[in-house]
Nucleic acid binder design. Structure first.
Lengths: 322, 322
DNA sequence: TGCGGCGAATCAGCATTTCTGATGCCGCGT
DNA sequence: ACGCGGCATCAGAAATGCTGATTCGCCGCA
């Protein structure tokens, strides 16, 4: 990797901060947050998105911090940035500081009395399957001052919003690929392959190659099933003929009924509609794969009293049942 | 103590900071610094001075922090403020965060290569007695890029400037009354009572009562000897007739020579001038008291590499000698 | 009981900082 | 070569933090 060229001209407009003598009392938490985000992402641009900032803002903050500390923190390469040796030493300290500061905020929140405010939750799929009703009821009864706002979306989108902290938490189907998002497994959901009745005769056996030959209703890449399905095909070493990409189960169901092709559906949905014959299940309804349904939230908020409340009530609703 | 009345109207101008969802990513280090300073001082005004800020600025910062955390941090009483119960829980966290952040800055400074910059040192009394020459020579030889700026003053003033971080460090004579200023004892300095030659006959014995009857050249309250002298008189249960207050030893010496009254002088100075008869020492030059000569610096900078350098070189210069 | 004094809150205006959007520059892959 | 990803830079705009003057509440004192 060749180091990207740049002339070290400073733009620093000169701060107002009271810089007294030796020590310049100027380092601030927002700079550390940015530092850590950039270190994590390896890109100013991506860090900027995570921080809800523009890229120039991130550039400036990093530059200011580097100047403040008297140490270069990143080496700029084409295609991204990389921690310097010094920064590798400093990063854990910054993380510890941020962790402590979050801890302090959480403590304060815990001390500030009855929890109130609005919680934003991302939902996916069928509300009933999330046990959304019982959960919110439980939440409401225990914390009356809390209001909830739900946002429906597809699995990947929800996860991303949780990552970007646009949502306080959300449901996710599948294995969460981010390490700065924590998850609470709720249950396992099985999936079957649904066939239009007219195609059923052709696919009586459990032959994957045969399955690969009929039209396949694909999933949008933001749907968590998408990657699950892809793994599935790869494992069987076949590749399907996709007739399109769709991002909601209800849509898929409709299209299967209409005979457009075969698709993967959640076991429960599939079984329900197989019962009345509007679709037929491959292999008689055996699940071809499964994925965990999880509740996800920002890892930074692991100890946030609010998140704890969410987790506790969720467990209460899910534990006895499953 | 009666709680001070006030209507909790907020002025908060609304921040720009990206307040996303549940958590408001807005707490900043400068607010914590202010919080801790106020907690320590018990007065917004005094904290403001320590922080080089105006009192309204401190008010606003505390208010913002309280709003941020959702907890009242101080109760306002006439004559000052006091920590709330919640704040007592939170304060240690804030201190830990600040300590860590300082630690990080120090680490960065240590990593940033050869130390350079300007160090401001407060001096008192006679430079030679501070071994200033040898010390600065040692410092210079070891850290060539470091420049030193000395500010001469009286003991109390220097200590205060160190406390307010206007100076990186300084010399102080006496026991340091502040706990947020650390000190490095260098040596002990003895003091004798100097008499004008013409008064000597009247005070041949070692009678304190007799001493109390002659005119006394007092010390300004900012001179560290001031409190030492006061203790001394109190211990002897007598009180002198002050003819004025002066703040430099050289001045005192001149006045004693001129016959205005008696005064307390450092042993060495006193002995030197007693030798040529321009003054006479009470009790033949026995010290009546002594005080430690110390190097003082902000406690927050205990681990600052710069301060470590100062301490190490000082010890090197002072250790072998005394 | 009226009068200064102390300390905090408030207000308006100002100075400075920080952000954004547009743009430039640099390597890389197609 | 061209477009693209990604960072730096710039100018303008928005927002924040700070200050000085003033007010308010409470206390001690005459």
């Amino acid at each position: 990797m060749k180091l990207r060229h740049r002339d070290y001209i400073r733009l620093s407009p000169g701060r107002r901060r009271t810089a007294v003598c030796g020590i310049i009392d100027g380092m601030e938490l927002y700079q550390l947050r940015t530092f850590v985000a950039v270190a994590q992402q390896g890109h100013l641009t991506q860090a900027a998105e995570l921080l809800h900032l523009s890229q120039p803002a991130v550039t400036a903050q990093i530059k200011a911090l580097e100047e403040e500390l008297g140490v270069a923190l990143f080496e700029r390469y084409p295609g991204g940035v990389q921690l310097t040796e010094a920064a590798k030493d400093i990063l854990p300290e910054a993380e510890r500081i941020l962790a402590l500061s979050r801890g302090m905020q959480h403590k304060a929140k815990a001390l500030s009395g009855e929890p109130k405010g609005k919680v934003k939750i991302g939902t996916i799929g069928v509300p009933a399957r999330l046990k959304l009703g019982p959960w919110l009821a439980c939440l409401r009864s225990r914390y009356p001052l809390l209001t909830v706002q739900t946002t429906h979306g597809i699995s990947g989108g929800i996860l991303n919003e949780v990552r970007k902290k646009t949502l306080d938490g959300g449901f996710y189907l599948g294995r969460n690929p981010y390490q700065n998002v924590n998850n609470l497994p709720l249950t396992e959901i099985g999936f079957c392959v649904a066939l239009p009745p007219q195609m059923a005769p052709m696919l009586a056996g459990d032959d994957w190659d045969a399955l690969a030959k009929v039209p396949w209703l694909g999933l949008s890449q933001f749907n968590s099933l998408s990657s699950i399905t892809q793994e599935l095909w790869r494992a069987q070493n076949v590749s399907p003929r996709k007739v399109g990409e769709f991002d909601e189960e209800a849509t898929l169901l409709e299209l299967v009924k209409a005979g457009l092709g075969v698709a993967i559906l959640a076991e429960r949905t599939a079984k329900r509609f197989a019962a009345d014959g509007s679709i037929v299940l491959w292999r008689g309804g055996d699940c071809v794969t499964s994925a965990p349904l999880q509740f996800v939230y920002s890892a930074e908020r692991e100890n946030d009293p609010l998140v704890t409340m969410l987790r506790d009530t969720l467990l209460e609703v899910w534990q006895p049942a499953e």
